[in-house]
Design a protein around this nucleic acid. Structure first.
Lengths: 149, 149
DNA sequence: TAAGATTGAATCGTCAATCTTA
DNA sequence: TAAGATTGACGATTCAATCTTA
């Protein structure tokens, strides 16, 4: 329990850093009249899944969102015409989600803005070597572990 | 621009780590029938402000929340009986927010649960030395900078 | 019984507009 | 004009309950 204080300080720093960066990056997207970061995140995961599409349950694990949250986010994306829901051939309970042409176009349109925002908001405060250190330190939290704390 | 990729990976790691930890820690508080983390954060800042209370505008900067968000959060805390709003003596536009006795009691009741959750969720995946490194790496983002990205 | 997914109700967050005072 | 703060309208998130299929 000797490292309790260190962990507490690190957690607070993580909380504050996240809010601060997220706000700035989302503001950039909004200023360009683009959808929020969460949409990009999901569009990208769906695009990466390729022609077979992706199951919502996989999406939940990748982007770390609640089941109902993903369900509604997909509904919004469908309404916006960016993705399509299809019945899953191997599991009739499920479905697969696919990117539409306009979804792909939007994802591509968002990327340069998002990339520049990351460079400006994160990159300028974190030289390459330190960015790599940060990725390493955060890696243990990114891995999917048990669902309950 | 050579460090663009490092910054991108670090940002994604930050996003995922934040969501993963926040979900687990909030689940602990909920399991103990306690208010969410955001409430603790604000109660603590108000308590730290002491007898003079704190101005909402200061609170916004400390916890990095939008003006309207803080306003509504304070309203909920008032409704719960944890804080009180008082007119600000030096600036009639403003107000000062003060912790009530039950607010202090709740803050104290939450802390051991929160502390244990941090230890379990963050501490176990990050030895003391690495926790310190993480705090250092995130420090540049915690500092309040200009409000626009 | 459990897993994938959706839904209703409630809470929470954000944006833009507004109000008051500096 | 600008700063501190609130509000209405809307969007997003969560919890619990539900539905269907494994």
């Amino acid at each position: 329990m000797a490292d309790t204080q260190g962990a507490e300080a690190a957690w607070i720093a993580l909380l504050r850093a996240h809010r601060s960066c997220l706000r700035r990056i989302d503001a950039r997207l909004k200023a360009a009249s683009l959808p929020p970061l969460a949409w990009y995140d999901v569009l990208w995961e769906i695009e990466r899944a390729g022609v077979d599409g992706i199951r919502p349950v996989q999406l939940e694990r990748r982007v770390i969102l609640e089941q109902s949250n993903v369900s509604r986010l997909i509904t919004r994306l469908v309404r916006a015409g960016y993705v399509e829901r299809c019945g899953c051939p191997t599991d009739k309970r499920g479905q697969t989600v696919h990117l539409s042409a306009s979804g792909r176009a939007m994802r591509r349109r968002m990327w340069p803005i998002y990339q520049q925002a990351i460079a400006d908001v994160v990159g300028t405060r974190l030289p390459a070597a330190r960015a790599r250190q940060l990725s390493v330190l955060l890696a243990p939290f990114v891995e999917p572990t048990s669902k309950t704390a």
